[in-house]
Simulated scan of single mutants.
Amino acid sequence: MTQPQANQAQAELWNNQAGHNWVEQNAMLDRLFAPFEPLLADAVQGAKAVLDIGCGAGATTFAVARSLGAQGRCTGADISAPLIELARRKAAETGADNADFLVADAQQHAFPPAAFDAVISRFGVMFFDDPVAAFANLRRAARPDARLAMIAWRSAAENPFMTAAERAAAPLLPDLPPRDPAAPGQFAFADPERVSGILSAAGWRDVDLQPLDVACAMPAPALDIYAARMGPVGLVLPTLDEDRRRAVVEAARRGFEPFVADGAARFTAACWMVRGRG
């Protein structure tokens, strides 16, 4: 019997429905998460070669590349071919000569050794089957004393906006699997001791996690699309008949009502800023 490929479930997810959903809603998501871009750019000032893990369509890659100027370069890597294709189109359209992109599983991709003096990520490192192996691979790609700066979600309990749709729609979706905080996924890095242990075991030094709370907002009308496309609810909706799908979307949309005021949905993204040294 052949062994399953590393991160096979994530590769299938992000190269199919989830990846296409993020491509479709990329403009909205980029606006939503724009406040994180300067935080990562500031964290790697002075670097010359930066690797952006789980870069998606490249928003953080472009922001860091701009901040580094012509003397620096930022390489974005993501397991999702649809998202990397979009990032490459953006780079060509905007003339971003110091940003480039790879379709790559960071857990096992053969990055050039000791090629980067900084490694960053915005919500892109919580999905590895074997996170120690992944961060050891990234450590090999990093130069001695390279900086590590990553933003990851804290717990689901601290991020009620992120689970509002599935909680509201749960009575209509009894088979929706519960989130497993120990499995690869959005909240897999909620436990700071676990994250510190992963990074230390992978060879990173001076690991430090600090709480990071960031105010985010989107126009209230965008919630209809957000509820229907994002997260576990967005993945299950295409499998439902039209009437049930409509009922689920309406329930999910109601779940966001506590966050809406004055025409906008506002929430605090409860995250970690994770730092380390190679």
Score class of each variant (00 low, 15 high):
111 F>S: 01
201 A>K: 13
155 S>Q: 08
63 A>R: 07
74 C>Q: 06
244 R>N: 01
27 A>C: 05
46 G>Y: 01
4 P>C: 10
11 A>Q: 15
126 M>A: 12
124 G>I: 03
119 V>W: 04
204 W>Q: 07
167 R>C: 06
211 P>H: 05
129 D>F: 01
28 M>I: 12
159 N>E: 06
221 P>C: 14
217 A>K: 12
194 R>E: 09
7 N>Q: 03
140 R>I: 09
91 A>P: 07
224 D>R: 15
194 R>H: 15
225 I>D: 15
100 D>W: 08
82 P>C: 03
3 Q>P: 10
262 D>I: 12
234 G>L: 10
240 L>Y: 02
257 E>V: 10
104 A>Q: 04
123 F>I: 07
119 V>D: 00
141 A>I: 04
176 L>A: 03
154 R>M: 07
238 P>E: 03
254 R>T: 15
273 M>T: 14
190 A>I: 04
241 D>I: 02
248 V>T: 01
86 L>H: 11
271 C>K: 08
243 D>V: 15
178 P>W: 08
58 G>N: 08
268 T>E: 09
109 H>C: 14
127 F>M: 13
108 Q>N: 11
176 L>Y: 03
169 A>M: 07
137 N>P: 01
48 K>G: 12
114 A>I: 05
29 L>F: 10
53 I>Y: 02
186 Q>L: 15
99 A>Q: 08
11 A>P: 08
150 M>Y: 06
69 G>C: 12
98 N>K: 00
86 L>C: 10
255 G>D: 01
225 I>Y: 10
137 N>E: 00
264 A>R: 12
